[in-house]
Design a protein around this nucleic acid. Sequence first.
DNA 1: TCTATAGTTCGTAACTTATGAACTAAAGAA
DNA 2: TTCTTTAGTTCATAAGTTACGAACTATAGA
Lengths: 127, 127
Amino acid sequence: MRPLIHPPIEDITVEGILHALSDPVRVAIYAELAGATCTSICSNFLQVSDRSIPKSTLSQHFRALREAGLVHSERRGVEMHNTSRCMEIEQRFPGLLPAILSAHNVQSADRARAIKRKQAAARKLGS
Amino acid sequence: MRPLIHPPIEDITVEGILHALSDPVRVAIYAELAGATCTSICSNFLQVSDRSIPKSTLSQHFRALREAGLVHSERRGVEMHNTSRCMEIEQRFPGLLPAILSAHNVQSADRARAIKRKQAAARKLGS
DNA sequence: TCTATAGTTCGTAACTTATGAACTAAAGAA
DNA sequence: TTCTTTAGTTCATAAGTTACGAACTATAGA
């Protein structure tokens, strides 16, 4: 088992962060981690936004987040405990992560609203 | 020649924006466009951050920016005129683009500083 | 020592991206 | 009109990246 790679803060790039967060599963995971007050284990994310993720894929997603510098991971027994490195990144790129998370929230809210509207329309047609 | 695709503002996604800007050439182009007060033609970017970009590649990069919703392009005669759609995006995802551009500036400044340091060290060794 | 759990690695198929070569479309010159 | 130049696009393909099942490792607990 190869060791976990956590880039030092000065090696973290904007491009790397944007690429890592340009995947819907990874932003969703990152948003959860950034909002959490304690560590989360990988298997908490086998279901993400109503989609189930194969565990090999999930493992790669965590690796991507880790190697982009977004999360810190630590093996504890059989589990992997993850936290967001948001404080550090906020120091280096102030405002970047909050802006991305807020945009992600806007988008989620818009989507939820669109789905509700669609369901209401379907009910109306059905009745 | 297929028509230019400009997604309507409500179809623009955060993931799409982040993906488009996760390429160093594209952020550099976008940063220029966003800072400009008038339109820029594609061929202005055949040189970007000291790297020359083949024009077929450049064409694809502009397509990526356009289809992510980041830029508006318009053919005028033989040229393609591009502007950033920053106002619209600011409405939908407030603060997102400013934060990315500011992070990009931080990173550019850090890199410039690192290069200067290296050059100074090289001069010292050489003398 | 056996079993279960949590995650990783590997192989491969599917997708994406970069680029040279050949192309189109407009503008201006002859 | 026809030729030439300029600016950008499209296509084919090679290179790189990603997703995921199957097989694996490492730890914990029975």
